[in-house]
């Protein structure tokens, strides 16, 4: 996430003076970073299906937010003093957050709760050795 924000911040800083190609390149990096970030964030705790869903959601959201990174869009945005891309960045960041939390949630919903019956049986046995009184 930090990496993504740093990239997006760099992206924002570069927008006014940068040429369209630089913007495009940074946009692609941000997209890649966001996708990787989503995968890392959800980690191994979710199923492959949820991971793919996250990746796909991030890709879709960012592609939409960046207007498919078209040269003319970027040039126009630069000319408009960042406003269009600034908005797109905000939407992309929000979309990223939603995608990650959604995927993580999907993962949590799919996680099979582990079996602790052995440990808990031992704990129950331990409790049999205790002395109970009527202290309270």
């Amino acid at each position: 996430m930090k990496k993504l924000i740093a990239l997006l911040f760099m992206f924002t800083l570069c927008m006014a003076p940068a040429e369209a190609q630089i913007l495009k390149s940074l946009g692609e990096k941000a997209l890649k970073s966001a996708t990787e970030g989503a995968k890392n964030a959800v980690g191994k705790q979710i199923t492959k299906r949820a991971e793919k869903k996250a990746e796909s959601a991030v890709n879709d959201a960012l592609n939409k937010a960046f207007g498919e990174v078209k040269e003319d869009t970027l040039e126009a945005a630069a000319a408009q003093n960042m406003s269009a891309l600034g908005k797109a960045l905000g939407e992309a960041t929000a979309a990223y957050g939603n995608a990650v939390s959604g995927a993580m949630s999907a993962g949590a919903a799919n996680v099979t709760l582990r079996d602790f019956s052995e440990q808990n049986a031992a704990r129950k046995e331990h409790n049999k050795t205790l002395k109970f009184d009527n202290w309270d």
Binding site: V111, L113, D133
Partner: peptide
């Protein structure tokens, strides 16, 4: 009935709320 040293169960807990779940 409780006593000092009593071991309560351990394990995973999942809470689902408003379409969001945590484990």
């Amino acid at each position: 009935k409780l006593a000092v040293g009593y071991q309560l169960p351990i394990g995973d807990v999942r809470v689902s709320m408003e379409g969001f779940a945590v484990v």
